[in-house]
Design a protein around this nucleic acid. Structure first.
Length: 446
DNA sequence: TGAAATGTTGGGGCG
DNA sequence: ACGCCCCAACATTTC
């Protein structure tokens, strides 16, 4: 009888196409599925994401129980310590997990892999969340791409993507008593992931965290939204996007599934897959330039003269700027934990250009309020808006929030939905603000 | 994955 | 019929 395998779930909270779980399953022994809430998770997970995580773990717990008679054990504390203790007690044959790519998780996981390998012969990580590993796609000089189009072209030319695998067949796995270890397992409730103040009450109307919810959104997308995606995706009043971002962040659905089920005749031109490509691009950028979540990729922006403006920042956060499309976006974010991507660009441009507030302030707010908050995507998005990142909009490309509203919400449906009581009392004069931003840019240059 | 400023063109009104 | 002006429509340049 083979010994047990530990599967360390992190942000691959699914059973289909989950290579770590699959590999453990194939070993035919007992499986010990664990989730560990340690400092790295705690620091990196904002309030809205915690809400999501709570429900996603609940869902995974239920599925593991129902399909395999496995109980996902939850721990709080230092991941290395806990995994080492588990290893001491259970002498697992294998310890598996899905890879993450942020600097903090990489630092931690490398140490863990090295340390556990001394006591366990098969400690392995798997690719569960990307189509292309960041170190696999390099330009002809062997360096990472900094422009999207050539990056994506290279990805698509670089070979085939593995087909997703179904969840392993249902069966009752032998159960081990994980309570034996000295670090006590705790209840999911004890992680206190849900808010004390019930600001999450509306979230339930919009989201269904977990693997089943992810599949549901994906099927809706394929059935109803895909055909109009390339035109409709820019109009926030329409339901044209997949709304998969939080599911993808927590690994409730596999990008390989999206890839294969799109069945594109020409992947290069497929607009939806291109968006998946931006996600890949963001992850490889953060991998190769790990400092960019805090520092602009383009050096000259280190001396950009940002303004301190706590009143402006607060008005932006609350959706009280007096610019309808900006306020609508910020309120959609607050009420649902999500914002349409077109509107993200508009509100980001407004904060960075019209208010001249450091993009990092905006990034921080997004990390705390988005259910899909993802360090790689968020960093790319904000540095793009700030003009200081890879393949970024040139700084002088200033969005006019009124014009953007006219273009992308012509009937004001989106605005009315989120700010029914809209009062036009702008906190800045856009024309003057634009001039000010251009001057600041010139100052940095000179 | 801009928008404003500036330049060019051409149709129509009118003396 | 012609030149002149106005200005919308479009194109190009600049920020």
């Amino acid at each position: 009888m083979p010994g047990p395998s530990i599967v360390w779930f992190r942000r691959d909270l699914r059973l289909h196409d989950n290579p770590a779980f699959q590999a453990a399953y194939k070993r035919n022994g007992a499986i010990i599925p664990v989730y560990i809430w340690d400092d790295v998770e705690e620091r990196a997970t904002g309030a809205a994401s915690r809400w999501w995580l709570y429900h996603s773990l609940t869902s995974l717990q239920k599925d593991l129980q129902n399909f395999y008679n496995l109980s996902l054990t939850i721990y709080r504390g230092d991941a290395l310590k806990i995994l080492s203790q588990l290893t001491d007690v259970f002498c697992p044959q294998a310890i598996y997990w899905g890879r993450l790519y942020e600097p903090s998780t990489r630092r931690r996981d490398e140490k863990i892999k090295e340390s556990l390998s001394e006591d366990c012969e098969d400690v392995r990580s798997f690719n569960s969340s990307l189509l292309f590993e960041p170190w696999m796609v390099l330009n002809n000089e062997g360096r990472p791409f900094q422009v999207f189009t050539p990056y994506w072209r290279k990805c698509l030319a670089s070979g085939s993507i593995e087909k997703p695998t179904a969840a392993p067949p249902k069966e009752n796995r032998k159960v081990v008593d994980s309570k034996k270890i000295s670090v006590p397992a705790i209840n999911l409730e004890d992680l206190k992931l849900r808010p004390k103040i019930p600001w999450d009450k509306n979230f339930y109307k919009f989201w269904n965290p977990g693997e089943a919810g992810a599949q549901k959104n994906w099927n809706t997308f394929l059935k109803d939204r895909k055909k109009n995606y390339s035109e409709g995706r820019d109009f926030p009043a329409l339901a044209s996007t997949s709304e998969l971002s939080p599911h993808l962040h927590f690994g409730e659905i596999s990008p390989r599934q999206l890839w294969w089920e799109m069945k594109p005749s020409s992947a290069v031109q497929n607009v939806f897959l291109k968006e998946v490509g931006w996600r890949e691009f963001a992850h490889q950028l953060l991998y190769h330039f790990p400092q960019t979540s805090n520092e602009p990729l383009r050096e000259e922006f280190k001396k950009f003269p940002w303004r301190e403006d706590s009143k402006g920042l607060r008005a932006w956060q609350r959706g009280e700027t007096g610019f309808p499309i900006v306020d609508a976006g910020m309120r959609q974010l607050w009420q649902t934990g999500w914002m349409h991507n077109r509107v993200r660009m508009i509100v980001a441009s407004f904060l960075v250009k019209d208010l001249l507030i450091d993009w990092r302030k905006g990034a921080e707010w997004f990390m705390d309020t988005l259910v899909d908050a993802d360090l790689a995507n968020n960093t790319l998005g904000w540095q793009w808006a700030g003009g200081c990142g890879a393949d970024a909009a040139p700084y002088f490309r200033v969005f006019n929030p009124m014009l953007q509203g006219e273009k992308f919400d012509p009937n004001e449906d989106y605005i009315r939905r989120w700010v029914p009581d809209m009062k036009l009392d702008p906190i800045v004069d856009h024309k003057k603000a634009r001039e000010r931003a251009l001057q600041a840019f010139a100052k940095m240059k000179g």
